[in-house]
Nucleic acid binder design. Structure first.
Lengths: 348, 348
DNA sequence: TATTAGCACTCTCATGCTGAGAGTGCTAAT
DNA sequence: ATTAGCACTCTCAGCATGAGAGTGCTAATA
């Protein structure tokens, strides 16, 4: 991450503006900067530098004679420099305490994955006052543990799919009523002994290939197995956990009703969020999208801080914070990063 | 439901005010009433009557020289009279069409109960522009179909609980690692043959009694069965389905940010809603809470229209609409009632 | 006696004006 | 290269104004 040009002084002032604005959303003026952060310069000098920063696109003025406000580009510069510091290791925090508590809590609900993700999402949003988002492990990447079929009504069967991660999915599927429970068990046994330990995705491919290669010779039961399995794993409507709209309303950034509408709209449709976070699902580390950088139209006025969590080095899902561009990036990045690591550790 | 005193004229005018205000939230004045609804009276007469209605508590003025606005009591009177008409059968609607569509849709997702409830909630909120709420069948009232245990890891077992309604709950529980899968099957068999067809609640009681009565002689395995079963059915954190906050924001009633905060707060904590709707869960027909009538503090400025849905005459859960007191009660009541009936029919 | 026309009164809301406050940009001095 | 000084610009709160809407009361009317 290259911290572009900008001499020492300009940088200092840019940081001052960003930090001040993050902590209180008032446009910041030259006099204020010299007072609050005692560099050696006079307001006039600061004014000149600010004018330069504005020309370069890092700051902007709401109107002549208001102070300066950071632009998306300004935030970007700030964030890049934070990330630099962070990677150099000089980044530890007042929140260490809560993290320990959180980790303990996680351990307790490890078993109930659904519950666990809710807990994570809520904690995220409550602690940050931004919107917390967690995507569960993508079905295709989870590792198949076993499947079982339980007869339900005459022609209905409940398929229970267990993954190594402890995710359980179930679905009622219709089947040929002539299949006995014994048949169902045989099918389950076949799938379990043959495929346990591989990812859902791999299995899907293997089954398709197999069905194609041995088309003619195919045992009828196994043919059925494939069909049923395919029905059973079409669970894929991965849910997204989102929480914190209420808390976000208390931020001054959303004191305007139309802003709230905007953000509600953005998070209402979970597909939008999924679309955004999916792009990250194979990458590592913390990612930050600031305002316009956001690939999703609905979020051009918001910022997203996201990171993947992993199980044994395979990225599984994403956790993220969504907030105003005037976000406390330092805090958000720390939280997202730490919690992602917590989860990863819990999964191993 | 007694439509108290109030002579014909007063009633007409009250209805006029309520209806006008519901369709557009502007205080309604005497002149307007005489123009829009051509009764035979002059504005002056209407003014006198309005003054009376205000004394009686049915109307109020935002300030001298604004028009009148209905009070909670005013809405209550209006709603009671609607309900009267409805019971007399003279209440059918422009929404008959959508209802047919909706019923068809329901049939298709009958199998996936979770999905079905989401669908209902969303439809409710989308069609009404209010907040749709559905509570799933209360666990205790559902009928036990069968339970199964699947070994998961050394000391962990997944319990799968099926109810007659098609609700599936699953939970990972810890067990004595010495229990073999055979043992587990025996336990499941025992529970399934013994208790299938009774409600979760009844079974709980029976088990407790039995354990108490035959304490000493008790087969170890059955003792385990009880323990496991008790763990397995402690699923009871019944979820509530809520949707429509975004749509409600577009109502003029919530153009003020603090109003939105209020309503968000009210629906954020689902326990609040549960508390409210639980009171209805044994009753029949449509219930309306208007503003202050609401037993829950957080909803003193909102109205709730709710009805229970049933399976074979046993009330199962509640569906409801939450909106401003300035609600289109006629529409809301019709929707809630009809959809509740739809669901009941689907369950039979 | 019940209704209504007429009118004075009240309150809101949009508009426009004003002065204080904050912050800028430019110029000239250091 | 920096800074003091100053004129300029823009916002915002406060205040006055007048139009508009709607009321309550009184006196006239059917």
């Amino acid at each position: 991450m290259v911290i572009e040009f900008l001499d020492e002084r300009s940088r200092q002032i840019l940081y001052a503006v960003v930090q001040s604005y993050i902590s209180k959303p008032d446009p910041v003026g030259s006099r204020f900067v010299t007072k609050k952060y005692s560099f050696g310069f006079s307001p006039a000098t600061v004014r000149n530098i600010m004018a330069d920063l504005e020309d370069l696109g890092f700051l902007s003025q709401p109107h002549t004679s208001a102070g300066r406000v950071p632009t998306d580009k300004g935030y970007r510069f700030y964030v890049d420099s934070i990330m630099g510091v962070r990677e150099a290791g000089g980044f530890d925090s007042e929140w260490g305490d809560f993290v320990r508590q959180f980790a303990k809590k996680l351990e307790n609900i490890r078993n109930d994955v659904n519950n666990m993700f809710w807990e994570v999402t809520n904690s995220l949003s409550m602690m940050s006052n931004y919107i917390g988002v967690v995507t569960p492990p993508r079905a295709e990447k989870t590792i198949f543990n076993r499947i079982d079929f339980i007869r339900y009504k005459e022609d209905k069967v409940v398929a229970i799919l267990l993954t190594e991660e402890g995710v359980i999915k179930n679905k009622i599927i219709g089947v040929d009523p002539r299949l006995t429970q014994d048949d169902l068990n045989r099918i389950a046994d076949y799938l379990n002994t043959e495929y346990s330990g591989q990812t859902i995705d791999e299995i899907k491919n293997l089954l398709v290939k197999k069905a194609y290669r041995e088309k003619a010779l195919w045992d009828k039961l196994i043919a059925k197995a494939i069909k049923i399995y395919e029905q059973a794993i079409s669970f894929t409507e991965d849910d997204v956990y989102v929480s914190g709209l209420y808390d976000v309303m208390n931020l001054p950034d959303f004191s305007d009703i139309s802003k709230i509408r905007e953000i509600s709209k953005a998070i209402k449709d979970k597909h939008i969020i999924l679309k955004l976070l999916d792009e990250l699902s194979d990458s590592e580390g913390v990612h930050v999208f600031i305002g316009k950088e956001n690939p999703v139209e609905e979020m051009k006025n918001l910022s997203v801080v996201a990171s993947t969590y992993k199980e044994k080095e395979r990225p599984m899902g994403v956790i993220a914070l969504i907030g105003p561009t005037r976000m406390d990036y330092s805090k958000a990045i720390y939280m997202v990063d730490t919690i992602a690591k917590c989860i990863s550790r819990t999964f191993d």
